[in-house]
Design a protein around this nucleic acid. Structure first.
Lengths: 201, 201
DNA sequence: GCGTAATCTAGAACAAGTTTCAGTAACTGC
DNA sequence: GCAGTTACTGAAACTTGTTCTAGATTACGC
């Protein structure tokens, strides 16, 4: 039984790691330009200078590829958040701040966001592991916002249920905005509304 | 400016209405058998005895087709609910009952549910109108559960925000269950959790 | 009923995701 | 440094959603 750290991937040689990064970078670039449908596997392969077959060896489907990209972006966001965490008074406010800050970032690259979110929502069982990874990362971010500077004991089942509901809302709400079915103000309202489930402290 | 009743469709001749129903029936059948990927446009066309081009004239894409199917199913559920509405004491409980009852129905046809929900979540701008229709129907159902027998005045913005959050949770949670990433119990918990946003009465 | 316009059919053609394969290059254990 | 295995390349093939076309059928105004 081998256990891998850092996102559970098998170890790669340097060239392989470089290929992987080139692929993710190409994906991000294409997605940022035209969203989900602009991420075409042949183009990703060409832009990252990798054969189509190789692309598929690294990421077994377009959805896998985009979910991995999402994880990548989320990781960057998480790093930023740890560097400058929200400073608001209550845990509820910190979560709202965190999500709104993430939202602001996404507004800067709506196409990229659309591509990643569509993939995440469209993902089926075969992408279960990868989606779980993203989901765990999100949960961690919200938990850190809730606990703030404090030590932060084990989250209760209740905590986790609330966080699940928050992320559900977060995702669906974002999709609705990307599809032009919800305004920015509405997304904000929804976030604030669902965060009322976090007890005041 | 022509306004159509009943789901905003242009009037159809009898044969056309029959074709449309055959298509929806075929879709439901195929979806129930193997979910989203089993709904193949050629098969739908063949099973409903309609040319492929005609299928596309009625439903401009696979996603449109499945969202229309969803509306159709939702409508049936709504009818059942009006016939035997939830009888619980508070509005919160009635909403929980309604959603859990819907969930129970979906557990009977998980593949069908998966096909419809995937399409709904994957839908982009071009399906905006149809998704809105589904969304309105859902909102109405929840509003009716909230008001119970009472007259039910205009919903406030706050009401609508809460309902949006509930449906977001409802959809994402269902998807997570369909993908094996959440248990039935978890879906139930999430529903109960999000419904705490409904004020007690 | 008749002519015209809209609709339907069968089938080919096209687009993008995915798979496959023969040949070449890179890594690994010794 | 070499043998053997694994990974990568380039290109073709296959699948399924979508579009297009030419010819038949149906609906509609008169």
């Amino acid at each position: 039984m081998t256990t891998y750290t850092k996102a559970d991937r098998a170890p790669l040689t340097e060239r392989q790691e470089a290929r992987r990064r080139r692929i993710l970078r190409a994906t991000t670039q294409l997605a940022a330009r035209g969203g989900y449908e602009s991420v075409q596997m042949r183009e990703v392969a060409e832009l990252s200078e990798v054969a189509l077959g190789t692309l598929y060896r690294y990421f077994p489907s377009k959805v896998h590829l985009l979910v991995a990209t999402m994880y990548d972006q989320l990781d960057q966001l998480h790093t930023q958040l740890r560097r400058r965490p929200p400073r608001s008074a209550g845990s509820r406010e910190r979560v709202v701040d965190t999500l709104l800050r993430a939202f602001k970032g996404m507004q800067r690259e709506p196409h990229l966001t659309e591509a990643m979110m569509r993939a995440l929502q469209f993902a089926d069982r075969s992408v279960g592991a990868e989606v779980d990874t993203v989901s765990r990362e999100t949960t961690t971010m919200i938990l850190e916002a809730i606990s703030g500077d404090e030590p932060a004991g084990e989250p209760t089942a209740e905590d986790l249920a609330v966080i699940r509901v928050i992320t559900h809302t977060w995702h669906s709400s974002l999709i609705a905005w990307l599809n032009g079915r919800a305004s920015i103000a509405q997304v904000r309202t929804d976030i604030e509304t669902v965060c009322r489930l976090i007890p005041e402290d």
